[in-house]
Amino acid sequence: MSAGELTVLQFTPSPTSLSAKVHPLVIFNICDCFVRRPDQAERVIGTLLGSVLPDGTVDIRNSYAVPHNESLDQVALDIDYHHNMLASHQKVNPKEVIVGWFSTGFGVSGGSALIHEFYSREATNPVHLTVDTGFTNGDATIKGFVSVNLSLGDHQLASQFQEIPLDLRMVEAERIGFDVLKKTAVDKLPNDLEGMEDSMKKLLALIDDVYKYVDDVVEGRLAPDNNIGRFISDTVASIPKLSSSAFEKLVNDSIQDQLVLLYLSSITRTQLSLAEKLNTAAQIL
């Protein structure tokens, strides 16, 4: 603030590098709520739960829909419902607090400011998440906003929605496998060995790709890219250098460990079936 007479036009809080992490469950839940929305409702609105991480990132982990009525110029939110549901959620996980609200639709719409004001009273600096369930521009657009106040000195002029970067945390979804979550119907969950086979096939395909790339570069069919070259050399270097006898020993030891375990479990099973036979035999006695 340079001079006393000048009043400063500024945004509060200043648009910092705030970002939000969205877990896949939230998107799933919003989509499900949208599919189950009441007749004639244009969109669904709901509360986002989560926590604010130490570095200021908002971690959005859970959500629930809140029934609402919308007419041209006003929005009526079922606040009782919102509080009941919040109390229920907090019974299970007290660490999850309100971090914002969501709405379906493309970007911010008319009533959003009103709802945002309501949530500003429930949480400090809430995040507004919009999920475009209508695929308005052909993409699955998911956007996050925070409200920024424009003020002239102490006098508040207006507030605006400022878009913030979103980190769509798909690690959990990847853990389960997109194959399961992507299709509308999956007949069977993959069991462990099938999953293993898949992963190995992928690994093989990747190695083949790398081979092909290296060959192409060596033959001069492709322009070499230093970055890729460095990645490849890093990857190759990450394989520990072992003498072949030491490696052989390592592998054989592990294999033998596993074999012992297998043997043990087979013996146990034999024991079980034997015990059962003996038990039934004793009953006849």
């Binding site: 799933f28 989509c31 499900d32 599919v35 979550l181 069977k188």
Partner: peptide
Amino acid sequence: IKVSNSALIS
């Protein structure tokens, strides 16, 4: 177990 998802989620 079978898994199903709505078309929207898919």
